[in-house]
Write a protein that binds this DNA or RNA. Structure first.
Length: 321
DNA sequence: AAAAATGGCAACCGCGTCGAC
DNA sequence: AGTCGACGCGGTTGCCATTTT
C-alpha cells in the first residue's frame, strides 16, 4: 500500500504555468493569503493545479521581491562558503540570500557554479591567480594558514589539526541563521555546523589510513591497496583523500612543507611543489571528476573538510567517538 | 541549413518531519 | 502514544533555447 496522492492526479494540470494561471494564483494569494493550506488553495483560486505545484510556483516565481538574473560574486562566495559548511541545504543557503530561492540556487550551483569551480580545479596552483572570487578565497586561506600557530606545524596529531581547522573556519565570515531555519531537527544547521567541525578531520582521519612522511601527510597508503597491480581499488577513497593533502599542506605552510603528495586516482601518487616565486606548480596532469567538486571546495573556499552527505559522515564520526 | 549535443531552468516527485487530533 | 494529513526539502526530470558539428 503506497502513499496516498496529495491530489487527484487525473484532474490536475501539469507542466508550465500559463500567464493566466499565474495571474489567478497571484491575485488569490494577494487577496486571501495562502490560508495555511496549499492543498485546498487551487480549488479556491479556481486553478486545476496540485497544491504543491501552486506553492512551488508562488515561492519560486510569483512571490514579491524574487530576484532573477545573474548572481554576484558576493552571492557566489556565500553559496560556496555555505555549501562547504552545510552541504546541499539549499533552503538554508537561500535564506542567506534575500530574493533568491532554493531552487534558483540549486540550479545555479548545478549548472554554473560547479563548473566554475572545475575551471579552478588545479589547486593549489590556483594560488598564483590574483583576481576573482575563488582566488580571493585561496589567498585568504593561504594567508590564514601561514599565520597559523607554528606549534601545529609538522604535527601528526589529529587533535592539533582539528584545533587548527576550527580556528581557520572561524576566521571566515560569520554565518547567522534565523531560529525558524534551525527549528527542524533534521536540518538543524546549528548542530550541523557544530558537528561538522568535530567530524572534519578526526572522523576522517580515523576512517582512512594516514601517516606522515617527511612532512608529507599521506592517506590511504600501500596497506589500503589490494589489487594485484598495486593500484588502489577504491578510487573514490583516494579522491576523497586528496583534500587532506591540501589542507594539511595549507595549514602547515612554510619551510619544510614545500611539497605535497596527491593521490591521483588510477594514476597513483603525484606531487606538487612551489617554485622560487612561491607559485605552486603541479608536476602531472590533474583531472578531477564531478564527484570531486566538494573536495575542491573544501580545499579552496574555506578549508572545511566537509563533503558528501554530512548526515551520514556525521553519524560515522559520532560512532568513532 | 539541418541535426545533434549541450546547457539552463521550471516543474515534478518522493520522502522526512511536523503538528493536530 | 499513535495516526494521518500537510508542508518543506532536495533530487531528478523534461522541455526549450542555444551552441556545435
Amino acid at each position: 500500500m503506497g502513499r496516498a496522492p496529495c491530489c487527484d492526479k487525473a484532474n490536475v494540470k501539469k507542466g508550465p504555468w500559463s500567464p493566466e494561471e499565474d495571474a489567478k494564483l497571484k491575485e488569490y494569494i494577494e487577496k486571501y493569503g495562502t490560508g495555511g493550506n496549499w492543498i485546498a488553495l487551487p480549488q479556491k483560486a479556481g486553478l486545476r493545479r496540485c497544491g504543491k505545484s501552486c506553492r512551488l510556483r508562488w515561492l519560486n516565481y510569483l512571490r514579491p521581491n524574487i530576484k532573477h538574473g545573474e548572481f554576484s560574486d558576493e552571492e557566489d562566495r556565500i553559496i560556496c562558503n555555505l555549501f562547504t559548511n552545510i552541504g546541499s541545504r539549499w533552503s538554508i543557503i537561500a535564506a542567506q540570500l534575500p530574493g533568491r530561492t532554493d531552487n534558483d540556487i540549486k540550479n545555479y550551483w548545478n549548472t554554473k557554479l560547479k563548473k566554475k569551480l572545475m575551471g579552478l580545479n588545479r589547486l593549489p596552483s590556483q594560488i598564483k591567480s590574483h583576481s576573482g572570487t575563488f582566488s580571493s578565497l585561496l589567498h585568504l586561506q593561504a594567508s590564514l594558514s601561514s599565520s597559523s600557530p607554528s606549534s601545529y606545524r609538522g604535527s601528526n596529531n589529529s587533535t592539533a589539526y582539528y584545533a587548527q581547522t576550527r580556528s581557520f573556519s572561524s576566521a571566515l565570515e560569520p554565518i547567522s541563521f534565523s531560529p525558524s531555519l534551525l527549528s527542524r531537527s533534521s536540518t538543524n544547521a546549528a548542530s550541523v555546523l557544530h558537528q561538522v567541525h568535530q567530524e572534519r578531520f578526526v572522523g576522517r582521519a580515523m576512517q582512512h589510513n594516514y601517516q606522515v612522511k617527511d612532512n608529507i601527510l599521506m592517506f590511504g597508503g600501500e596497506a589500503s591497496c589490494s589489487s594485484s597491480d598495486g593500484s588502489c581499488s577504491n578510487q573514490i577513497s583516494q579522491c576523497r583523500d586528496r583534500e587532506y593533502e591540501y589542507n594539511y599542506n595549507f595549514f602547515n605552510g612554510g619551510e619544510g612543507h614545500q611539497k605535497i603528495m596527491l593521490p591521483d586516482g588510477l594514476n597513483g601518487w603525484r606531487s606538487e611543489k612551489q617554485n622560487g616565486n612561491g607559485i605552486w606548480e603541479d608536476q602531472a596532469p590533474l583531472d578531477y571528476g564531478l564527484e570531486e567538486i566538494k573536495q575542491l571546495i573544501s580545499s579552496t573556499s574555506s578549508c572545511n573538510n566537509f563533503l558528501f552527505d554530512e548526515n551520514k559522515t556525521e553519524e560515522k564520526a559520532m560512532m568513532y567517538y
